[in-house]
Amino acid sequence: MTENIITIKNLNAAYQEKPVLWHISLDIPKNSCTAIVGPNGAGKSTMIKTMMQLIKPLSGEVKINGSKDKHELKKIAYVPQKGEVNWDFPATVFDVVLMGRYVHKGWIKRPNAKDREMALEALKTMRIEAFKDRQISELSGGQRQRAFLARAIAQDAEIYVMDEPLQGIDVTTENLIIEVIRHLQQSGKTFVIVHHQLDTVGEYFDHAIILNKSLIAAGAVETVFTEENIEKAYREKVN
């Protein structure tokens, strides 16, 4: 019997005054690597933003480790879609990764040697330690994505929620990210990832959530990632 780390019950959510998530109930098992797939406008981003309490749902609830407490959010590291940050900000890659450690810091407290070490470790994991003193804006798209992943790793979270981390990056970075995810999964972490390439779902993930405003299917990849479900989600509405 697998334990569920995220439980969503009867979730209804709207984005910009339009309902995008209807009546969604699902469980995400602990230590899984779950893909969220669905066509554009299916509510994938809204769903993970609701998980992160960035969007308030109309009704229903999201529980993490069986609790609705805001404190549980600290166990989630969120890697946003690209282009949501202020690139003009004077911060080095190391600064950015070190920001991940602030989750565990109170007011005023400065990061200590251990925090720095963990940040450096995360940089090494993502193989960007050579750029640690670079300005974040000077990195290429793939390198930036690695830096944000490194920040999430430095957060030392239980759950990693990512919004299309593989969108528009080079093959080397994609392979590296997948490799790192596998590795972290082995050490007990859970991944929830919005994914847009259907052809790699079976290869990269063990669980899948197929979404188109309402839930089409959720569960182990081999049982839910079927042609029938995909067609159901992606079918163009006639008329």
């Binding site: 209804n12 005054e17 309902p19 209807w22 009546h23 009704s59």
Partner: peptide, 18 residues
């Protein structure tokens, strides 16, 4: 006002859909 109405309508529709 519209968003309040809309929310009310969502809620009613949700009950019916359930």
């Amino acid at each position: 006002i519209r968003s309040l109405n809309q929310k009310r309508e969502f809620n009613r529709a949700m009950i019916l859909m359930l």
